[in-house]
Nucleic acid binder design. Structure first.
Lengths: 193, 193
DNA sequence: CTCGTTGTGGACCAATCGGTCCTGAATAGA
DNA sequence: TCTATTCAGGACCGATTGGTCCACAACGAG
């Protein structure tokens, strides 16, 4: 037994996620990663194996992070439908912040890789499914709370919200004006009435 | 005066668009381009200046192409609302074809560049605006034809459709199942009732 | 047919890519 | 303290990147 690791894998993974999230896979170089993570190349390859493998770690990390945060947000709110609404309003509100300009990491990856990379595609789909399930859970709770009109198909609505959220974030990333995004959010949420 | 050009600029631009559309900017190499276009490097640089400049040409080309096609589609249909519906149904139907897997070139570019590249960002926004205007025109015509309920805000709806179309195409590119896409389309179009 | 002009192909370039590997330093157990 | 082990730094690698440049071929005007 010898030297303990001088860095925290979780912490440097987080840094990697931020870089990949902001720049995408192709546009990110090894140097970008190692300097952001504070790692030497040898430590990098020893720990993560390759740039591609690290990207998959980042994807997993994002999915867990987003899922956890979103599920928490949707679960903790006293009225589930309000939580769903606030998620969309938040995206429009934060569109022009640095975080908003990054878009959704899942969506970005879907756009960059498509179905070409199986490992990546699988994780993207898993992330989208997680988002869908989170929305669906919230909608079912909303239904029980009497906030969702009877006859609404929670699954179809959840899928719709998943697609809409990605569309909205894409528009935000493209630099759409605030009132444009507000129009979108307004119309999306009208589907819940 | 001497040798005439041995290739058609329009034709090779089209080839370039196809490559960029399928692979994105970063993932496309000069070699990809020149071999698809059938050009030597010198002819390439003589004609287009740089990879980046060609990408802008491709973006313009796509916008004009999509706009023209969509406007035509929306204008020629006897009932404008049916045309709008058919656009969305077509995306879901063609999702798993090669063309569907490419996603929307505008959306892809928005995702890849964000607002980082001014030239690109400007063209992306112009493309989204063109899409929005096309939808808006169709919705106003639908309204005149009595197919759109009174009180609907055509501009807000058009923006919503623009975002939704991008979201839908992103889901398709991510490899979403057909019935997922159908749920999305169904719910999107329900906003028009 | 000749000549001047211009497009073309490919050699060539420095820079950078992702990735490997070796050296030396740091450290926990004995 | 000594040693076995594992760490980090960076030299180094071939391949590839986007881009330049030049010698040659093709062609229109005279």
């Amino acid at each position: 037994m010898a030297r303990p690791r001088e860095f925290d894998v979780d912490e440097v993974s987080e840094r990697a996620l931020e870089v990949f999230w902001k720049q995408g896979y192709q546009a990110t170089t090894l140097q970008d990663l190692t300097s952001a993570m504070g790692l030497s190349k040898s430590s990098f390859y020893e720990t993560f194996g390759s740039k591609h493998a690290l990207f998959l770690v980042a994807l997993d990390r994002y999915r867990d992070k987003v899922l956890a945060r979103l599920v928490q947000l949707l679960d903790e709110a006293p009225r589930a439908l309000d939580a769903v609404r606030s998620v969309f309003h938040a995206v429009a509100r934060d569109a022009h912040s640095e975080a908003g300009q990054r878009g959704c990491f899942i969506g970005n990856s879907a756009s960059e890789f498509g179905v070409g990379d199986p490992d990546c595609s699988c994780r993207v789909r898993s992330g989208l499914k997680a988002l869908e399930d989170a929305f669906r859970g919230a909608l079912e709770r909303a239904s029980q709370q009497g906030d969702l009109p009877a006859g609404k198909d929670a699954r179809a609505l959840a899928r719709f919200l998943t697609a809409s959220l990605n569309g909205l974030r894409l528009m935000a990333k493209a630099g759409a004006e605030r009132d444009t995004l507000d129009d979108v959010v307004y119309t999306v949420l009208a589907a819940l009435d």
